[in-house]
Design a protein around this nucleic acid. Structure first.
Length: 108
DNA sequence: ACGTTGACCTATA
DNA sequence: GTATAGGCCAACG
C-alpha cells in the first residue's frame, strides 16, 4: 500500500460526523493537486480496507454524490449522510458550503 | 503493450 | 449561468 492511499484514508477518517469534504481538497492537502481522480480511486480501495473509511463524507466539488453507486445500494450513501444529520436533496448535499470541511484549514 | 475508462478539477468561451 | 476541452494517472480489458 503506497503512502498516498494511506494518507487519503487517514484524512477521510478525520472528517467529523456531519461534515463533508471534496476529492480535490484532499488531493491538494496531499500535495497531489490536479490528480483528484486518484483520490476517488483510493475510495474504491477503501472497501477492502479493514479499517472503516467514511467515504460517504467525501463528495465532489459541487456537493454532488457522484460515487453513491459504488456503495452497496445507490441510496446507501444518502442514508448514511442523513443519518449523520446531513440533508441530501436531489443527490446534492444541502448547505454544502457550510458543512464543507477543508483538511487544509481544519486539519492543518 | 496500448487504448479506454473513471467516486475529479480548472480554465476558457 | 451552461458547454466544451484539457489534464491527471492508476487500473482494466
Amino acid at each position: 500500500m503506497s503512502d498516498f492511499y494511506q494518507n487519503v484514508f487517514e484524512v477521510v477518517r478525520q472528517i467529523p460526523a456531519g461534515r463533508v469534504t471534496s476529492y480535490g481538497a484532499i488531493a491538494r492537502y496531499l500535495g497531489t493537486a490536479g490528480s483528484s481522480r486518484m483520490v476517488g480511486w483510493a475510495m474504491n480501495l477503501s472497501h477492502h480496507q479493514e479499517i472503516y473509511v467514511p467515504a460517504h463524507r467525501v463528495v465532489n466539488r459541487n456537493g454532488l454524490l457522484t460515487g453513491k453507486i459504488h456503495f452497496g445500494s445507490p441510496d446507501q450513501m444518502q442514508e448514511l449522510l442523513e443519518n449523520e444529520g446531513i440533508m441530501v436533496e436531489d443527490d446534492q448535499v444541502v448547505d454544502f458550503k457550510t458543512l464543507f470541511w477543508d483538511p487544509m484549514t481544519e486539519l492543518r
